[in-house]
Each structure stands twice: as structure tokens, then as C-alpha cells.
Design a protein around this nucleic acid. Structure first.
Lengths: 200, 200
DNA sequence: GTCAATGGACAGCGGCACTATCCAAGGAGA
DNA sequence: TCTCCTTGGATAGTGCCGCTGTCCATTGAC
């Protein structure tokens, strides 16, 4: 199909597709002449992925770049997959240090976590920001939140390991991690209402 | 203290404080003359809250407005608190319809949820976006995610109900909901690494 | 032969969260 | 008193981001 058909199929304007081509978010079509190129199903899929990431995941264009690069790289062993995937994910607040409290938390939980994990820094920043906003976050609450997120992670890993290929597992982990976050946030709101109604 | 001292105390430039005053995010100080006003501890706290929300919660200036309005309103009964709080929270994707699948999900779970809840629409949109990005989200996975988020919500409600006043409970629910989301996201990443390492 | 579509280059836009400039009035130190 | 700095207020500008609009030469379908 030509670019205008790709635009029609995906609902994305031609101008925006050209922009994605310029930015390297969309691979060029197969040129059939100097002013004509052919696009296929993989282009449709890519456009849908890029739009979903841009519109719903909060990672910017640069983040989409990094995610696409991770998906394109030959996926490493299962051991390294998580580390590579998490380093490819844009993580807000991963600049600062790891707080003592967060270090103690993962120690207490007995979580075997890479000490340089971006998520450790992000967690430290997020906890500090919540406290600055006046939210009381006790160690006990953090432990209970962590236990719940361990259940979430178990689902994530079950789905990822069920993938038929390492590339599919990589896709599941990287894209699933960023795209399911909003799902979890919405579920949390609903669960709050549900729990409140049951208790009230 | 004067505005320059407020700026020094909070680390926020005077210009930005003036901007917050203009936008109504910061209440005016007590005017001691036409070119002098006195700011107090509640201003410091408000500035910290506004900055935490702007920098770390993803809700924009408009969302901060809506949150502050909810905090200022006389908090209703515990029954209504959650509904009022959630309507005040900016919820991306709350424009669309509620998908059948999401409706069936809350039915299956037996969650007593208000059918007009913004989170229902947000969840529908988030699930659709994840699917568009190629993430396989089975009904079973959604159920397991929902169970985990029910545990999270139980912690949320425990903390909120421990508040000594309805106003404090409102603050805990509204601010806690948006500021703890990033904490949960970071914990999910860490839990993924931990679970992966344990299984590998 | 005609005319719309294409690829390519590049500037412009709209929204957002500030940030800079300017001004008159008012207070504080010399 | 004089001078200089700060304040509040108003208005306009900045930088970033994700597009979007314009222009052009080439080309291919009708």
C-alpha cells in the first residue's frame, strides 16, 4: 500500500507519517520508484505501536525511540532480558541517588535487585515527592504496596515467559510494562471505590 | 515572611510564585501594604504540594486546580468521599465509552462500582490502547491484576481512614492517589526484576 | 497530456509551564 | 530627605514537544 493508504488504514495523517519517517520511528517502505514506496502490514503494526506509546504511555518521542531500539536488538537470555528492557524504558526520576530507606526496603523484602537499577532511583524520587506533597508513606505501607506489586509482576512474568519467541517476550515485557501501567492505575481507582463501598 | 523569603525557603523562583498567585494555585499573602504581603507556613506547604503535583504527578496546572478545589471543599461523608475525590482527579481517557469487557470484568469481580465512574472509562481506554500496541491482555490477566490492585486499595483505604479529620482523609485520598501511582510503577519494575531473578 | 500523489526539506503552530521585562508604589538604610 | 531595592501587577516572550503547513521537483495513473 502507499502512504496515503497507510494513513487511511491507521487513521494517522500523511504529514504525521512523514514526520515519523523523518524521526526514524517508522521504517521506510520499499521504494518502487523515486516518488513511490510500498508499505505493508508491518508498517501498519508499527504505526499503531508508535501511536499507542505516544498517546497513552507518557514516554516521549525519545522514549519511543529507545523502546523501538530495544525491540529491534537481538534479545538476550532470559536472565538479561529484564535488565535490558528496563534500561530501555524511559524512567522519570532515575537521575537522583538511591535513598537509604529504599535500600533497606528491598533488603527487608529480600528482593534480589541489581543495585544500579533505574527503578531504585525512580522509587526513591517518587517516595520523596509523595512525602513532599504531604502524603504519609510509612514503611509498613510501602511493604504492603510492594507485596501487591509482586503479585502484579508475577502476572507480567507469566505472560512474558509464555511468549513463543525471545523477541515476543521482549515485546511483551517492554511494551506491556509501559502500556499496562495506565491499566493498573485505573484498576486502583476502581478498587478504591469498591473497597470503600464494601466497608461503608 | 515576604515573597523573596518564601522563594528561598521552597527553592521556587519568585517569578514562578507570582505565576502561581496569578493562576490561583497559591493563595495571596496577608497584605501589609500595597506593595508588601506576609506569607506563612501554610504558603510553604502549599507551594511544596503544587510543585510535587506539577513535577511528579503528570496532572497539569488545570489538574492541580481541580485537586486544590477538592481539598478546599468541605469534605462530605465517607461514603461520598471517594466519588468526589475521583471526580476531582484528572483522569486521562475518561471521554470514551465503557467497553463491554470492562463492564463484565467488574461484574465478575463483584465490585460495587458507580457505573459513571471516570475510572471505568479510563480503564476501557487503557485496555484498548494496550491491545492496539500489541499487548495481549487476557481476561485472566486482568482478573489477577485487579486482585493485586484490590490489595493496593486496601492499603489506601486503611491509611485514609486512619486520618484524624475528614479534611485529612480527603488530602490522603486525593494527593495520595496521584502521588503514590509513580511509587507503585517503580515498585512494579523492581518486583519484575526480583521475580525474574528468583525464577531464573 | 494532465493532474494528483509522493518524497523531501524546512519553517510554523498550539499548548504548556514557566520566565523576562517593565512599571509605579512603597519601604529601609544613608 | 534621598536613594535604592523589593513588591505586586500586567504583559509579552521563551523553550520544548508533537505535530502541521508550505513549497518543490518528480512521477505515475488516467
Amino acid at each position: 500500500m502507499r502512504i496515503s493508504e497507510l494513513a487511511e488504514t491507521t487513521g494517522v495523517p500523511v504529514h504525521t507519517l512523514k514526520y515519523y519517517l523523518r524521526e526514524g520511528l517508522l521504517m521506510p517502505g520499499e521504494a518502487t520508484s523515486r516518488t513511490r514506496a510500498e508499505y505493508g502490514a508491518e508498517h501498519v503494526e508499527r504505526v499503531r505501536l508508535v501511536r499507542a506509546l505516544v498517546e497513552h504511555s507518557g514516554v516521549g518521542i525519545a522514549g519511543v525511540h529507545s523502546i523501538l531500539a530495544a525491540l529491534a536488538a537481538p534479545p538476550p537470555s532470559h536472565h538479561e532480558l529484564l535488565g535490558v528492557a528496563h534500561c530501555a524504558l524511559p524512567t522519570p526520576g532515575d537521575q537522583g541517588p538511591v535513598s537509604e530507606e529504599v535500600g533497606a526496603l528491598v533488603d527487608d523484602l529480600g528482593w534480589p535487585v541489581w543495585p544500579e537499577a533505574p527503578a531504585l532511583r525512580a522509587l526513591s524520587a517518587a517516595v520523596a515527592a509523595a512525602r513532599a506533597a504531604g502524603v504519609e508513606l510509612s514503611t509498613g505501607s510501602l511493604h504492603r504496596y510492594a507485596a501487591a506489586m509482586a503479585d502484579v509482576a508475577a502476572v507480567d512474568l507469566d505472560v512474558a515467559l509464555a511468549a513463543e519467541s525471545p523477541a515476543a517476550a521482549m515485546h511483551t515485557v517492554v511494551v506491556g510494562t509501559v502500556m499496562v501501567d495506565p491499566v493498573l492505575v485505573a484498576l486502583r481507582r476502581l478498587a478504591q471505590e469498591s473497597v470503600s463501598a464494601r466497608r461503608g
